[in-house]
Amino acid sequence: MGNSLFRFLCCGGSSKPPPSGHDQSQALGPHGVTAASAGVSALAQDLLHFEITSQVPEGLGVHVISSKRAQINWYRKLLEEWRKTNPPPRTPEEASRVVIQALKRHQKADVEGLLIFYGLPLSPASAEISGVPPPPKPQGAKFELQTLPVDAKAVADGDTINVYVDAADPRESPVVPRQIRKAASARAKARAAKDYKTADALQKIINDAGYRVVNGHKGEETLAKKYRIRLKGIDAPESSMPYGKEAKEELVRLVQGKRLRVYVYGEDRYGRSVGDIYCNGSFVQEKMLRRGFAWHYHAYDQRPELAAWEKEAREARAGLWAQPNPEKPWEWRKDRRNGN
């Protein structure tokens, strides 16, 4: 029964082998599962396991906020929705839509956490959750990045964040140096052989070149390009200023565990990419300004909406505006440079 159900879940009930000419080098299993569809396969197998045991996967609780009892209810709904889909989902986007449809009455954070758990895309899925379509590319933006899920440690302060983009991304793949691809492959072999000294040396080569091997929630490794992003148009309090810690914590809350869409306008003098960040359809700079955790950096960005959001926070005495006369971070930095 189990094998037939798995064929139904993954392959629309077909037990036929892949057609002649199928690229076996891309297959990860007998059903023609590829790296791109690994999350779909993992979800299908977990649904099969749930059908037999009524157990949800271990580790899911790290990504969601609801109880184990609620998770069991999700998987019942997911299994029902998956069976109704004909043909069954084959791509990550199709699987995301099934998850969203099955769990549309549940908390947004739980739906997103489940998608992250399986490595399924939050976009366009995230837009379907919130009802907000992906934002258009802003005027003046040079290119767009779609990141891997963000780690809390990647947030430097309230206006700077390190993000990683999958090296297989169409924009990144052609420019990954050959020696970095070789180093990543050699590192994986060294780790498999428990030669951690060699693996660490190769990891340093990868890191020094601006790349990183990122671990997924199920232990899979992804070669990724690092970008340091300076949020355009805002200036958060420095770490040692009042509300500096709170600004960083707010940015962590907004982006932790999420895939981000970043529109990059250029670089600043420190080599950081200056960009607008969107998270699940929401404009991160807007959130930081309205909640009173950043100033409008008008010297470098004259967009009127940024000024309006800062004014709104000032009038509400939100965040740093609870202070009677908060010091501007650019003036604070200037004073330190001058030795004051």
Rank of each mutant, 00 (worst) to 15 (best):
292 G>P: 07
339 G>E: 09
171 R>E: 11
203 Q>D: 04
180 I>C: 09
64 V>I: 14
176 V>S: 08
43 L>R: 03
24 Q>M: 15
9 L>F: 13
204 K>E: 08
5 L>K: 11
176 V>F: 03
114 L>V: 14
214 V>P: 03
12 G>N: 14
179 Q>N: 10
174 P>Y: 00
286 E>S: 13
253 R>I: 06
119 G>K: 02
147 T>L: 01
287 K>Q: 15
199 A>T: 11
208 D>C: 06
199 A>G: 08
278 Y>G: 06
269 R>Q: 12
107 Q>N: 11
111 V>H: 02
265 Y>D: 04
253 R>W: 06
224 A>F: 00
136 P>A: 15
1 M>L: 11
126 S>T: 00
251 L>F: 07
252 V>K: 15
323 Q>A: 15
281 G>P: 02
157 D>L: 11
70 A>P: 02
305 E>T: 09
1 M>E: 13
49 H>K: 03
60 L>H: 03
11 C>T: 12
49 H>N: 12
245 K>Y: 08
43 L>S: 07
188 A>N: 10
265 Y>N: 09
103 L>W: 01
336 R>F: 01
194 K>I: 02
7 R>L: 15
117 F>L: 04
155 V>D: 05
202 L>P: 01
209 A>H: 02
78 L>N: 02
330 W>L: 01
2 G>R: 08
239 S>G: 05
262 V>C: 04
48 L>G: 04
269 R>A: 12
180 I>V: 12
127 A>R: 05
90 R>L: 09
108 K>V: 12
338 N>V: 00
280 N>R: 06
279 C>G: 01
321 W>I: 09
74 W>N: 05
303 R>A: 10
251 L>S: 05
277 I>S: 06
92 P>E: 08
19 P>N: 05
148 L>M: 11
290 R>I: 09
83 R>A: 14
73 N>H: 15
290 R>P: 09
291 R>Y: 13
165 V>R: 01
296 H>S: 15
61 G>M: 12
157 D>P: 07
339 G>T: 08
59 G>W: 11
275 G>W: 03
153 K>I: 14
58 E>K: 05
61 G>N: 12
314 R>W: 14
234 I>D: 03
11 C>L: 12
166 D>H: 10
77 K>I: 10
93 E>D: 13
33 V>E: 15
165 V>T: 02
333 R>V: 00
237 P>T: 03
323 Q>I: 08
